[in-house]
Every structure is written in structure tokens, then in C-alpha cells.
Design a protein around this nucleic acid. Sequence first.
DNA 1: TCTTACAGTTCCAAAAATGAACTGTCAATC
DNA 2: GATTGACAGTTCATTTTTGGAACTGTAAGA
Lengths: 158, 158
Amino acid sequence: MARTIGVIGDRWTLLILRECFLRTRRFEGFQSALGITRHLLAERLKKLVRQGVLRRIPYQESPKRHEYILTQKGLDLYPIMMAIVHWGDTHMVDTRGRPLLHEHRKCGKNFDPVMVCSECGEPLLAKEVHTHPGPGAQGSLATRGLEARKAKKSREAA
Amino acid sequence: MARTIGVIGDRWTLLILRECFLRTRRFEGFQSALGITRHLLAERLKKLVRQGVLRRIPYQESPKRHEYILTQKGLDLYPIMMAIVHWGDTHMVDTRGRPLLHEHRKCGKNFDPVMVCSECGEPLLAKEVHTHPGPGAQGSLATRGLEARKAKKSREAA
DNA sequence: TCTTACAGTTCCAAAAATGAACTGTCAATC
DNA sequence: GATTGACAGTTCATTTTTGGAACTGTAAGA
């Protein structure tokens, strides 16, 4: 989770990616849709390309111009987006209702995204999930603080 | 989405909430698990309480001490957490494998979270979803930039 | 009496974000 | 032929946020 947050955990990156999912591809498109400073936008796009979330593809020579397209790694962020949108729809709407409806092409209906268990297909509830250390576990609860500090260092290096 | 990001969109808030889901409740617990500065931790906890994601509950008098517990609104962030964890498990693991496994009590198996359509139950793919403006829509694509700038102002006010 | 646990608060320095203007290439317009 | 506008950035000064370290205050326990 900390590693994912290193990728998407700031005020703008998720909004940039939302624009990607809404088919924005070019610098000016992002900038005018979001009102982000050009400086930060350039920075964030570079970072996303470095991380393999976006691909930078030339669409004309001289002057060189590029489009930013989601890679598969980027497309895989879709569930995160939908989870965020859905929480906002549930807890942050004003009286007018949700700003955007989602239609599932397969069944033709407007839907909500639901998180289910890959094994039994039941909706997931926090209380029904227990965690235990996996092969890449960093240590016990007791060493979590230390690991957190190490992780921070390596984030800074990146 | 912008509104949700106003709540969880910074480097620490999601990590704090992860600790909440892992049953951390107290100031020192968060601080030592995350290595966050005490200053920021206090700030973020206050903000989460204001936003109704956490509840601040006294557990002893003199000196007054409080615990931070997820509200229902906070518990509803679970799918976002799981989506983030799952993306990390898929795209950011090192050779050792995932740090944490999740077991679904209902079926007893280790699982991955899957995002499905509430209407037909099929897994969601970005390409199969089309969006259209809902009742709370803020305007056309053309006015999105303006709205973004307004939204920023109100975030600053908060 | 001294130390430790706990939950913050205060203050200064460092890092990141913002705003506004500037650069450079080309196509289209006057 | 000179000027303007679209596009994709870069530069730089100013503000805002973070980070780090030390400090406050209450109470229990050695």
C-alpha cells in the first residue's frame, strides 16, 4: 500500500489519471481541465511515465509533440478510481446528486462498483477479512515503525 | 472524485487509515507505526474527525486521552484500501512477493479483491464503462477547467 | 524523587506547490 | 513579411506544507 501511495498519493496525480480515463491525452487538455500549474503537470506526467503508468507517444514531428496514454499498469488503476468515485457518490454528494453516472456496456445499466472476493464472489466487508503476513512481509508489528522510516528514505531517493 | 481526494488525497492520510483498519487506535500507535511527524499526525487526525471519517472517543480521564475509531463513513473506505493494496500486489511487489495476505472469513480462502458491476456481477473493465452526466453534473467538458478552479478555492477554504 | 507513557504543541529549517511570465517551433492570418 | 495563436513545456520568485527536534503537562510506577 505504501508503494502504491508513492505513485498515486498526492493531490493531483489521481485527478490527472481521471482525465486519462476520460480520454484526455495532451498537455493542454490536462492543464485546462484541472487548473493545475503547468510546472507541476509537467513534473507529474514525467513521474507517471517513469513509473510505467503512462506511455509518452509522439503524434507529430517538429515541433515534437507527445500524447500521454495509459499503459496496462495504468488501466489497472481503474478499480481504485471507481472505488474513490463510489465513496464520493455515497458520502460527499450535495443535494443535487452525483455528478457522473456510469453505464456498464455489457448489461446496459447504470451501476455502482462493488468489491467482491475473488474466491467466493461475495461482497467484501472489512470485518470479514483477516490479514496475515505474506512471503514479502517486512517484519512484525513491532518493527513496522522502523520499516516505515526506511521506506520513507527510499521514496525520497526516487 | 475531487471531493474524495480532498479527504484522502495526501501522502499520509491513507496510511493513517490503513493503521485504523489494522486496529491501531491511539496517537502513539499511529506515530510509531508510520514514522509520521507528531505535528502532521495531530493535524490529520483532527481533519479526519472533522470530516466524519474517524470518531474521537475518550478512554480515560485525567489526563484526558482519546482513541480514534473509524465511523461507518470511514469503514466504507475499505474498498478503496483494498483496490490500492491489490494494485500494489500486482504491480509493485519485489521478488519476495506480497507483504500481506488477505483471508475471507466467509469462505476461508486467501483472495484478491475484484471490482464488479452491481447490476450484472461481471468484473468491470475500463473499456466497458461509459460515463454520462448525472443530476449533480457541474457542466460540460468545456467548463470543467473553470469548475476545477472553483473547487480549488473551496478546498482552500476548508 | 526520578523516570516513563502518553498526547499533544511550538518553533525553525527544508521541501514542495503556486502564479505568472518566458521560450521555442510551427501554421495560419493580416 | 510580420503578427498572432496553439502547443508543450521551463524558469523563477513567493507562499504553503512538511519535517525534525525539542518542549508541555498529567499521572502512574520504581
